[in-house]
Design a binder for these strands. Structure first.
Length: 504
RNA sequence: GGAGCGUUGGUCAAGGGGUUAAGACACCUCCCUUUCACGGAGGAAUCACGGGUUCGAUUCCCGUACGCUCUACCA
């Protein structure tokens, strides 16, 4: 029987959680759940210089919002902890030493200055089989010298001793067989001078210890795969190595290249899952959540960036995605992010989900714009009326504020040129009639409106827009008489009089 | 510079040796609508280029071009 599937997402807590990161989580999650396996979240915080307070908690919050709950993590617990690499520091050195003992790694004592000098001396310098004999390390020093330096606690790193002439190959679940020539891969640092492992060492040690069966990560990792393969071969055996899949990148909408936070700022759309405030600069970046996206839509949209089930279906629930997902159907090429399409996904989900479920978000958006809503029944009525014209929760502010508050700007210029005394008289009469209306219902209002128009011999079409401008302030929104009914007699008449005053 | 990966309409993409080369988003036209949307009907691709293999290539092979990623004691 096959081993239980175990996958992991391993972010470093250095800032906001990027679209591409969430998609990597998603594909990990979908694959694991499709196979009845476990999804592990491991924090890769081995670079102490890049530690950002709050970033870890933020990642957990994003995952919670998305509904992608880890089975094991630093906060969910689990049998293979700790799940923060900084807390596992002690165990890495031993593996690096094992490699040194076997001659597959070596101590290197080169200072930053020496490395810098070498880079200047040799163009495109690589610390590799071609150059390592020119450097200060346990390969060039005598055994005694090395031991002396070590005993004196001289700062040093441990580097992998890449084979000089081997073909390193592995099978990627998305790309098939991939080959590298070992001579072109440099001797990556495995253990840093501060005793922390680099990503290269940590990822293989932890994947082994945590019994990871499938390792998925972004395509940017492909060039360093041979380092990981060599490590696996000598540390734990290729037969125990997880199956790899390198996911295609999410590209910027214009031009080419990886989508970055900068692109979002420049083009006006979010890139992070949720709002992120950098504690060092206090710079605040809005996320998809706060911008008015439903998590269901966000996930759905991400899933379709680089994957589809081949049927043409585009709207999927998480459960459906779990059921349908397969790594073989993931694309090789990167996908450009399209914000318009992202909004479309949200629009579809808005239509699909019951209003009650997302009404609180709409309220929040109104509150952020100083409109407090106390009447839930009215809000639901309003939402039903305008939801076809909204893609995001934030759109409701623009589309429905006038139901709760008289419009601040009245687009009188839209009606002024064609305004005349006849229309003036019509509206005066309409107001008198409306004041006496016993039943304030949209069909009654419309009937009355048309009757008075007929008596005055004006085409109703000439009067509809003026009425709309009076009530809404602009040329948009649902049927005018529905609006009038909801805002009520008093408010309707007040707004008519207000605009009439402006037209005199 | 080197290595690896990629390339079907503006975008996401289905398909796969012989097809009218799906569908969605965006865009344009029309219908519906006395506003804006929604909805409905239409509109656009010689499948990067050049060689092969083949009766036949967008599909297989090899080159070329272009793009991207990596090339840190960052992940």
């Amino acid at each position: 029987m096959d081993k239980k599937v175990r996958v992991r997402f391993a972010p470093s807590p250095t800032g906001g959680l990027h679209l591409g990161g969430v998609r990597t989580v998603l594909f990990n999650y979908l694959f694991a759940k499709h196979h009845g396996g476990d999804f592990i979240l491991r924090i890769e915080d081995t670079d102490q210089t890049r530690f950002v307070p709050g970033a870890e908690e933020y990642i957990f919050n994003c995952l919670a919002w998305c509904g992608l709950t880890p089975d094991e993590s630093a906060i969910h617990g689990g049998p293979y902890g700790p799940y923060r690499q900084s807390e596992r520091k002690a165990l890495y050195r031993d593996y690096a030493e094992q490699l040194v003992a076997k001659g597959l790694a070596y101590y290197a004592f080169d200072t930053a200055e020496a490395l810098e000098a070498k880079r200047k001396e040799i163009p495109n310098f690589q610390y590799s089989h071609a150059t390592r004999l020119q450097m200060k390390n346990s390969l060039t020093l005598s055994k005694e010298e090395t031991e002396q330096l070590l005993a004196a606690q001289t700062p040093h790193v441990i580097r992998i001793n890449m084979p000089a002439d081997e073909t390193i190959s592995f099978t990627d679940m998305i790309r098939g067989e991939v080959n590298f020539h070992s001579a072109l891969v440099d001797d990556k640092v495995l253990l840093k001078a501060d005793g922390m492992p680099t990503y290269h060492l940590a990822v293989v040690v932890d994947d082994y210890l945590m019994k990871i069966t499938h390792a998925f990560r972004g395509e940017e990792w492909l060039p360093s795969a041979p380092v990981h393969i060599v490590l696996w071969k000598h540390l734990f055996g290729l037969e125990n190595m997880p199956q790899w899949a390198h996911l295609p990148l999410i590209l910027k909408p214009d031009g080419n290249g990886k989508l970055s936070k900068r692109d979002g700022d420049r083009l006006g759309f979010p890139v992070f899952a949720m709002d992120w405030q950098d504690p060092r600069t206090n710079e605040k970046t809005t996320g998809f959540k706060e911008r008015g996206f439903l998590p269901e839509a966000f996930i759905n949209m991400l899933a379709m960036l680089g994957w589809n089930d081949g049927t043409g279906q585009e709207i999927f629930t998480l459960e459906e995605l779990v059921k349908q997902f397969s790594m073989e159907r993931v694309h090789k090429g990167g996908a450009k992010f399209d914000y318009e399409k992202a909004k479309w996904f949200n629009h579809e989900w808005l239509k699909k989900l019951p209003v009650e479920q997302w009404m609180p978000e709409v309220k929040k958006q109104f509150e952020a714009n100083n409109i407090t809503i106390t009447d839930d029944k009215k809000l639901i009525e309003v939402i039903e009326l305008v939801k076809d014209r909204c893609s995001l929760f934030s759109d409701f502010v623009q589309q429905a504020s006038f139901f709760f508050k008289a419009p601040e700007a009245i687009e009188v210029t839209a009606i002024q040129p064609k305004w005349n005394e006849q229309k003036n008289l019509f509206f005066a009469e309409l107001i008198r009639a409306y004041e006496l209306m016993p039943l304030w219902k949209h069909d009654e209002l419309e009937k009355e409106f048309k009757e008075i128009a007929a008596v005055n011999d004006i085409k109703p079409g000439e009067l509809m827009l003026p009425l709309r401008i009076m009530l809404v302030g602009g040329k948009f929104g649902p049927h005018v008489f529905n609006i009038a009914e909801i805002i009520g007699k008093e408010e309707t008449i007040k707004r008519m009089q207000h605009t009439l005053g402006m037209l005199k």
